[in-house]
């Protein structure tokens, strides 16, 4: 399942997409430790699979919470994406 967490508002589109089919085979869950803002968590979803998700309290603020990892210039690779062995995480902005 592709889970899109985030939003579209007047200023733009801010979604973090997690392809959770990869999570079920993942034992590392590196995303949880890698995110400096603590956005990720491992949950049991509605189909009883253990998958990564963005915590509820961050879903309406990803634009701001991800800000420190996205400076205007000299933007390094995002730690959450780098930590995922399956390339399951993408950002829309």
């Amino acid at each position: 399942m592709k889970a899109n967490y985030g939003y579209l508002d007047g200023s733009g589109e801010y979604f973090i997409t997690i392809d959770t089919d990869h999570c079920t085979e993942c034992t590392e869950h590196g995303c949880v430790a890698a995110c400096p803002a603590g956005l990720f968590e491992i949950i049991v979803d509605d189909y009883d699979d253990e998958v990564a998700a963005i915590k509820e309290e961050h879903r309406k603020k990803v634009k701001y919470d991800c800000g420190p990892c996205k400076p205007v210039t000299d933007r390094p690779p995002l730690p959450c994406i780098a930590a995922c062995p399956a390339d399951a995480i993408t950002h829309s902005w």
Binding site: Y64, D65, G67, P68, K70, P71, V72
Partner: peptide
């Protein structure tokens, strides 16, 4: 807080 996180992106 929204303005601060925006400004932090430029330093």
């Amino acid at each position: 807080s929204r303005i601060v996180s925006m400004v932090r992106r430029v330093g």
